[in-house]
């Protein structure tokens, strides 16, 4: 999950399971608004994982989630999170 506080402009965000990322950079190179970059930090296996930069450009289109060969990243639109929040009585999974 991005640590940056969501700005008012951002339409979505990404969630990263950094411990299974292998740093292939598919998500970074093919992000349509170019809002992902390698982190300065390493994960336990020594790979740089993706972080949002700048976070306010993310649209939550989930193309990074479609490209990721390691199932380590996915994007969510804030409007979908809002819909989930309204239906928060039961745990719901976001569908593609």
């Amino acid at each position: 999950m991005s640590d940056d506080a969501p700005s008012k402009k951002a339409k979505g965000t990404v969630f990263v399971r950094k411990e299974i990322c292998k740093g292939c950079s598919y998500c970074i190179d093919f992000c349509p608004p170019h809002c992902l970059a390698f982190s300065d930090d390493y994960n336990a296996k020594g790979y740089h994982y993706p972080v949002l930069s700048p976070a306010e450009d993310c649209t939550g289109c989930d193309l990074c989630g479609l490209y990721c060969p390691d199932f380590a990243i996915f994007g969510v639109k804030y409007e979908d999170i809002e819909k989930l929040r309204q239906d928060a009585a039961t745990p719901v999974r976001v569908s593609a």
Binding site: R17, F71, F74, I81, R85, V92, V94, A96
Partner: peptide
């Protein structure tokens, strides 16, 4: 495996 966001559970759709 799941992102927890204010009590909401969001999982990767392919999981």
């Amino acid at each position: 495996e799941q992102a927890v966001l204010d009590g909401l559970e969001i999982d990767n759709p392919v999981m």
